[in-house]
C-alpha cells in the first residue's frame, strides 16, 4: 500500500494523507492530475477495483469534494482519493470521466450527476434518469436544496392531518384567559 501512496505523493503531488486504519488511507490530489493518478493506481499499483465514487458538498468552503475509493485485492488495501472541485452556485462542476478505466464508473457518474449535479463529459448515459424519474428540481444532495420547500410544492398533505403548537395547546388547556390578551386588545388593538 505504501508504494501506491508514495507514488501518489511523488509523481502526482498528492497531499493531506490521512491514515484511517491499516489498509485504509485517504489522500487528496489536484483535479487535473486525478485521472492520471487513478490510472497509475489501477495499472501499476494493483488498485484494480473501483469500489465507489461519492461526493461531499462543503458549501461553506465553496468546495465540491469527489472521493474515489479504490481497492487493491492483492494487498487487501484501499485508498480514498479525494479531489476538490470549485463549487458552483447553480451546480455543473465538471470532472473528467473514468469510464474508460472501469465501465461501471459510468453508473457512479450518472448518479453523481443526478444527485449532486456534477458533470462528467463523454460519460455514457450521463443524463439518463438514475433513480429520480421525472425530476425537474435542483439536484437534491446539494446542501442548498430546500427539501421542505420542495416537499410543500410537490406533495399534497395527507387528509386528516392536524398538528398543535405546544405553547398554544398549553395555553388553551391551562390558562385560556391570559390577561395580556385582554389588555392588549383594550389599549393597543393593533398589536
Amino acid at each position: 500500500m505504501q508504494k501506491g501512496i508514495n507514488n501518489l505523493i511523488e509523481k502526482f503531488g498528492a497531499s493531506d494523507l490521512e491514515v484511517r486504519r491499516p489498509g485504509l488511507s485517504f489522500i487528496t490530489v489536484e483535479n487535473t492530475k486525478a485521472v492520471a493518478a487513478i490510472t497509475h493506481l489501477k495499472d501499476i499499483d494493483g488498485y484494480t477495483i473501483l469500489s465507489l465514487i461519492t461526493a461531499v458538498d462543503w458549501i461553506e468552503d465553496g468546495i465540491m469534494q469527489l472521493t474515489y475509493l479504490l481497492n487493491n485485492p492483492e494487498e487487501i488495501a484501499e485508498i480514498g482519493l479525494r479531489v476538490m472541485l470549485e463549487r458552483k452556485e447553480e451546480a455543473g462542476e465538471s470532472m473528467e470521466t473514468i469510464h474508460h478505466l472501469w465501465p461501471n464508473a459510468k453508473k457512479w457518474q450518472q448518479e453523481l450527476k443526478e444527485m449532486f449535479g456534477i458533470d462528467f463529459p463523454t460519460s455514457p448515459g450521463l443524463n439518463d434518469p438514475f433513480i429520480l424519474e421525472g425530476w425537474d428540481a435542483a439536484p437534491p444532495y446539494r446542501r442548498d436544496f430546500d427539501t421542505n420547500k420542495y416537499a410543500e410544492e410537490t406533495f399534497f398533505p395527507r387528509p386528516g392531518r392536524e398538528t398543535h403548537d405546544p405553547a398554544e395547546h398549553m395555553k388553551k388547556n391551562m390558562y385560556p384567559n391570559n390577561p395580556s390578551d385582554y389588555t392588549n386588545k383594550k389599549y393597543n388593538p393593533n398589536r
Binding site: T147, N148, A151, P157, R161, H164, A167, H169, N173
Partner: peptide
Amino acid sequence: EVICENEAIDLVPVSDSKDGDSGL
C-alpha cells in the same frame, strides 16, 4: 416537528397538559 424537512411529523394530544409537558 420543526426540524423535519419533509413535514412528516404532527404533534397530537395524548394526555393532559401540565407544567413542563405539553401533553402532545
